[in-house]
Amino acid sequence: MTLPYNEIVMEYFQNPRNVGRIEDPDGKAIEGSPACGDMVAVYLKVNDDTHRIEDIKFESYGCASNIATGSIITELAKGKTIEEAREITWQEASDALGGLPAIKTHCSVLAVDGLQAAIQNYEERKGLITERVPTDEKEIRRRLKRVMNPQAGLDLIRTKTVTSIELDNGTVRIALDMPADHQFANNVRDEIIEKIEPLWDVNEVQVIFAS
């Protein structure tokens, strides 16, 4: 049988490790959305004294490379300190899997983003963020790349849906090339707020639709 994926990927796809949820996780993140076709949830249990990841679980809605990457990052991260785990890259996950098809990069990056976002969520919850970098447009754009335009199945940045970003003393104004009565306007607004509001120096997020 000729398959698009190598044996390691197929093994992790068929028998994913560390699947499921952790009750009362210390860190948690969901990346992607059903609209984009890939979604991954990562749950962390972290030892507060050692900052070591004692348990990690994931869930995936997506293709084989998403499932396999989700699985491999849990193995790579388990037992590491959050400082160490933060260094895990997509390349490392891909190498551990013996390589992934280029066209599937997006689906596998998502799982690594999920791990990083879960670590960040842990740090934010525990007030561990020591060097507080002021939020800038670059950081907002980075986060908006994870908000999907459900109609296009692609993110807001790639679909050029974001027309302007303004930062004003803790208020973030994001203007969209999308009418307020658009079928997905509410979903998109909620997702934007969910991604931007947790930033430490952001008090309010305003989403402005095209008139």
Partner: peptide, 19 residues
């Protein structure tokens, strides 16, 4: 994912998934 699992079991189908 459905298609791949079915293929492992010797069943060929098609899907409308973007992936």
């Amino acid at each position: 994912s459905v298609l791949l699992h079915l293929d492992m079991r010797g069943i060929a189908v098609s899907t409308g998934s973007a992936c």
